[in-house]
Design a protein around this nucleic acid. Structure first.
Lengths: 342, 342
DNA sequence: CGACGGACGTTATACGTAAAACGTGGGGCT
DNA sequence: AGCCCCACGTTTTACGTATAACGTCCGTCG
């Protein structure tokens, strides 16, 4: 496991395998048929794996004169629509050995920059959302400087983290609902394995447990309107006293909850209060407007980048969670029972 | 204007300026103080400009051993939230001489690919949305193979285009509303200079003009809920007979129209019908669910990529617009007048 | 008057890869 | 027996850049 501080090159692999650099290139480029014996090829591959060899893309691109990479320019605000465009393009690209990189045209990114300055790539570091969990193992393969967004600060990755203070957000939500008089809460949780969602569940549970006579039920749903709809519908038609409030991990889940409640003939907020998290456009598009925890996505990104810069310069990244704020709108009100005379 | 078929290198610039390649590197790297005379430096810069010199980033990266580029890994579906994350990160990055490239973690992009395979960059070609108009001039600076999405097919750019058949979509919308009995329509148009929006206005106008006794009014709004709200509100409170239907260029505009109508005490679809374009999550999140033109974003992306591949291989890109389909939901109904007995 | 240093450049080199050009030994064919 | 060609590699080169190391020429100072 003794690794040199510098990345292994094809020459290192060659030395380890006892062959020339050219042989390594042939084997790894899968052009060795009839040029290298199968046994030698195997030895080369083993050595490459052993050393954790990754070809230097800058060198390859320079040599080849092309990059098999394509740029997709999309309007500044990456909407769901263009996310789909990207997915389709990336699929076809992958099938053809191409890669796709997104370049959202800049807006408020300082002076108008050369659209291609951003597109050089090969990486000095990585900022990763904890929700993109599947990519993480591969990321650790390289030992690139890494900053995790919204990940367990004590996680095993040993990476710097930048977190939203989502625990405080859920504290605010819980206090708001308790103050209004709610005692039975349904937690519509995102069915995604991520630290940030675990925190939400834990915070809601402990906060409620501190108040006698309260009750929390949890139901999980994928982050989609359909998923939230069915999950909420079945949770609310279950036997037992009906919750007076639905706390959702996400605005989109809240939108699904709205639809479920409508379908059940219940009104928001008169019969049931609803809260979300994010405060994107959706929160004010639905009726009534959603009481939700506002996350400052841009600040989040800035802090993530600053942390990565710190790591790259050998400094200690700034610590401290990013504050969040509950925005109270029309979807929360005192429960019926509380409105009735005692 | 006679350009060599291959990109000029720093050596070409050197030759043109009558100096060595090293001098070019010094001047362009702004490290020439006390090493090169001001006059020579000026000559070098002129030559570089003249030849349209662009440094080869692969070579630079190889030489420097770093790239000043960072990867942001986001969950597969690039949501508005992560668009904000990107914006913030990109701003800080730009201030520090870094670039940011988006890598949405793949989902349904064939076999799980190396997360970094996509991130090599330096470009073979470009796919550009016509809405990212500001970036286009710079794009033409390089003479990279270019595919435009939803752009004027006869445009001056001389680039390949891939278009949605949005004209047919608006034909379907118009016919749907005419069949229901609507005669007075408000067109809530996107205030964005783009071919695709021009087509919508034109198609609606000509289609309606073919039917006597019909009338279209147009009001423009930025693509946001707030913008749509105020535009719709003022358009509907203007003097004259009230439109019985609002045709929106976009689902988000439709959501704004909903809010304006609610504020005016009008019900959808009983008092006013509403249509949109896109059919994203928003269309079914609002109540009633929106009658809208469904655009197949993924197919759009695939076709864009295929076209670019064709251009790169010297083939003729496949032609033919991408079909779209009107999805009828609860936001359209016959107007009151048509329901009344004749 | 000799040498010294600043102004102005140039030459040479390395980054890591891909692949063309170049061996070399031995088995099979004529 | 002589030759060729195949299996199996190696040596060498080039991609375009940044920069360390190395000249010159001339004015100036001791």
């Amino acid at each position: 496991m003794a690794r040199s501080s510098t990345r292994p090159t094809s020459r290192d692999v060659a030395q380890a395998a006892g062959v020339s650099q050219a042989a390594v290139s042939l084997v790894l480029g899968d052009k060795w048929r009839g040029r290298v014996s199968a046994a030698t090829a195997e030895r080369v591959r083993d050595a490459a794996r052993e050393l954790g060899y990754r070809p230097n893309l800058a060198a390859r691109n320079l040599r080849l004169g092309h990059t098999r990479t394509v740029l997709l320019v999309v309007p500044a605000l990456t909407t769901e629509f263009f996310a789909g465009v990207y997915t389709g393009a990336a699929r076809v690209a992958a099938e053809n050995g191409f890669g796709v990189v997104l370049y959202p045209s800049p807006e408020g990114i300082g002076p108008a920059r050369d659209p291609f300055a951003s597109a050089q790539a090969a990486l000095d570091g990585v900022i990763a959302s904890s929700m993109a969990a599947d990519a993480l193992t591969a990321i650790r393969g390289d030992q690139l400087p890494l900053v995790m967004l919204d990940s367990d600060p004590d996680g095993s990755l040993g990476a710097a983290t930048v977190n939203l203070d989502i625990a405080d957000g859920f504290r605010q939500v819980t206090d708001h609902l308790l103050t209004l008089g709610h005692r039975r809460i349904l937690h519509l949780a995102a069915d995604v394995p991520s630290w940030t969602f675990e925190v939400r569940a834990r915070e809601l549970a402990t906060r409620m447990a501190a108040v006698p006579g309260t009750h929390v039920r949890t139901t999980r749903a994928p982050i989609s309107i359909e998923g939230a709809l069915t999950a909420t519908e079945s949770a609310l038609t279950a036997p037992g006293p009906r919750p007076t409030a639905v706390v959702c991990d996400d605005d989109k889940l809240a939108a699904g909850a709205y639809k479920a409640l409508r379908r059940l003939g219940l009104r928001v907020p008169d019969d049931v209060s609803v809260t979300g998290v994010d405060d994107l456009g959706l929160a004010t598009a639905i009726d009534p407007e959603l009481t939700t925890v506002r996350l400052d996505a841009e600040l989040f990104g800035e802090r993530g980048m600053q942390a990565l810069l710190a790591v790259l310069e050998g400094r200690q990244p700034e610590s401290g969670d990013i504050p969040v704020r509950l925005v109270v709108r029309g979807s929360t009100a005192p429960p019926r029972a509380a409105q009735a005379p005692r």
